[in-house]
């Protein structure tokens, strides 16, 4: 079943086409990876899909609904959330509060009740807190629940962003280089976490440079180069594709 369909998506910056007529479809509950050399347009594509920038042309259909050009907070309402390549943690809060922000759309957030501290708000806060604590356990950060985000190590912050995104109760989760900068043990943990998220019924879109992780978790892989789709398929097909090897994997393979 198709969950996300992207057609002809295009975005230019100052005459350079960062994303150039990209088409693809993502099946529900797949881990769908997008790979490609630096500057291939992966991050721009993610920013387009998550509504941080608006496309020049093309369409994004999420679960049958046209969501092209919707701003990020409305996409979050429709079940799309993300993590960031360069951490965008709320460093002015505790780890738990970070996760609670993710639950914003499901809280009692109307102004007057909040101003008056009505019982409905207090109940909602209690539920949100419990839910956020569960998510901290889920991503393996239980010992950081009361920590200030600013005092947490890098690897933990990567998982904190995922917990925060999960708190939006997403149906599709965009992970932008979740393993960048992680050590092998942390990467193994991330591998398991991504699999578990997918098993729990959330579609995962993954941009990642760590190829071991990509081969390991992906159901489907899309290769971008110069803003265009270069190839698409399962891990085995992609590894065997000479174009991909030439454009992207070639020089890495030779290095290794």
């Amino acid at each position: 079943m198709t969950f996300l369909r992207v057609t002809g998506l295009t975005k230019s910056f100052g005459g350079v086409r960062a994303v150039d007529g990209v088409d693809f479809t993502v099946r529900a509950n797949d881990v769908f990876s997008i790979i490609g050399p630096n500057g291939a347009g992966k991050t721009t594509l993610f920013n387009l899909l998550s509504g941080l920038i608006a496309p020049d042309a093309g369409a994004v259909i999420l679960d049958g609904e046209d969501v092209t050009g919707l701003p990020a907070h409305q996409l979050a309402t429709r079940g799309l959330s993300r993590s960031f390549q360069n951490l965008q943690v709320f460093f002015n809060m505790t780890a738990l509060e970070n996760v609670m922000v993710g639950n914003h759309r499901h809280t009692a957030r109307r102004f007057l009740p909040c101003l008056l501290g009505l019982p409905s708000v207090r109940d909602s806060e209690r539920r949100t807190r419990v839910f956020a604590e569960e998510l901290m356990h889920y991503v393996g950060l239980e010992r950081y629940i009361h920590a200030q985000a600013a005092a947490m190590p890098y690897g933990a912050l990567k998982r904190l962003e995922i917990a925060r995104a999960l708190a939006t109760r997403p149906r599709i989760l965009l992970l932008d280089e979740p393993a960048a900068g992680l050590n092998p043990a942390e990467t193994a943990h991330m591998d398991a976490l991504i699999r578990r998220i997918a098993e729990d019924g959330i579609t995962v879109l993954l941009v990642e440079h760590d190829m071991h992780l990509v081969w390991s978790v992906s159901d489907h892989i899309l290769v971008l180069n110069h803003g265009r789709v270069l190839a698409e398929g399962g891990a085995r097909e992609i590894r065997a594709n000479p174009q991909v090897v030439e454009a992207y994997l070639g020089h890495r393979a030779r290095e290794r």
């Binding site: 965008q88 709320f90 922000v101 914003h104 806060e125 949100t128």
Partner: peptide, 22 residues
């Protein structure tokens, strides 16, 4: 309350706040 947390989120990172539905 959720409102206060949303305000702090705007301060912390507008990008992330938006992506979290704020």
């Amino acid at each position: 309350s959720p409102v206060g947390r949303a305000l702090k989120a705007v301060h912390g990172s507008e990008l992330a706040a938006a992506a979290m539905g704020v």
